[in-house]
């Protein structure tokens, strides 16, 4: 039984058939990179996993054999974490509270324990001294790193990344990718929607290419980048690697 399995997933946005018969699977500690042009459905797909986009039209997504559509919310959000493109840090709370409050509310941890874990995570990404600061005082790269800490504090089994570096200025992309790189080495199971092909090449266990809601091609990075099988994949890679 694979750790994560999506089978014949179909999803509609109103009348628009956004996801068509998507099937894929991966194991624990794998890193799945999802790429594709705008409107390909990659963000939609990742959002159907944690039910932010809405219920599936048909098909199923399973985590360790249990269907995600029927799982209780509490369990789902404890097991699956998400890092957003625009960070979505809580503006009115300090950095520390951003990481500590969800632990207290959703996991019932004590204030002391939540704060300790929060500080530990902040230190790990090099932002310990920013604990009392507010998100508006941090740069984009720093905010995203805090967002990653916030998601990690929940001890998720699967961490979803929705274009984590797309909203960042180029010079800050590196610091966030570094944090993600360390996560991979530490064995976290991740699904990453991204345009950062360097990251994909280096760290992905599998790369998936979506276009117009369909899964066009998937494979290990070595094959995917050097010998793409489909013409559409080749066209996409040509375009994106030229930059």
């Amino acid at each position: 039984m694979p750790f994560f399995e999506a089978r014949d997933v179909n999803f509609h946005f109103g009348k628009h058939h956004a996801l068509r018969d998507i099937s894929l699977a991966f194991e624990k500690s794998d890193v799945l990179v999802v790429c594709g042009p705008s409107g390909s459905g990659k963000s939609t797909f990742i959002r159907t996993i944690n039910r932010l986009a809405g219920p599936l039209t048909s098909g199923d997504i399973k985590l360790e054999g249990k269907s995600l559509s029927t799982m209780r919310s509490k369990e789902l959000y404890r097991k699956v974490g998400m890092v957003f493109q625009r960070f979505n840090l809580f503006q009115h709370l300090s950095v520390l509270d951003n990481i500590a409050l969800p632990q207290r509310r959703a996991l019932g941890r004590s204030r002391k324990e939540a704060n300790e874990r929060a500080m530990a995570l902040l230190e790990r990404v090099g932002l310990g001294e920013k604990a009392a600061a507010y998100p508006v005082q941090l740069s984009g790269g720093q905010q995203q790193r805090v967002a990653i800490c916030r998601a990690l504090a929940m001890d998720p089994e699967l961490l979803l990344f929705d274009e984590p570096t797309s909203a960042l200025d180029p010079e800050m992309v590196g610091e966030v990718l570094q944090v993600m790189r360390e996560l991979v080495t530490s064995g976290m199971t991740m699904m990453v929607v991204t345009h950062e092909m360097g990251f994909a090449r280096e760290l992905a266990s599998e790369v998936v290419f979506l276009e117009s809601g369909q899964l066009i091609e998937k494979g290990p990075p070595a094959e995917f980048f050097s010998h793409p099988k489909e013409a559409r994949t080749r066209a996409f890679l040509d375009q994106i690697l030229r930059h």
Partner: peptide, 24 residues
Amino acid sequence: GQGEAAVALGFGLFHRLKDITLPQ
């Protein structure tokens, strides 16, 4: 986005309103 992050972090409706939506 803040509401979405709150959902993704497992906040129940009551806490979502009390801690995130209403204060802001």
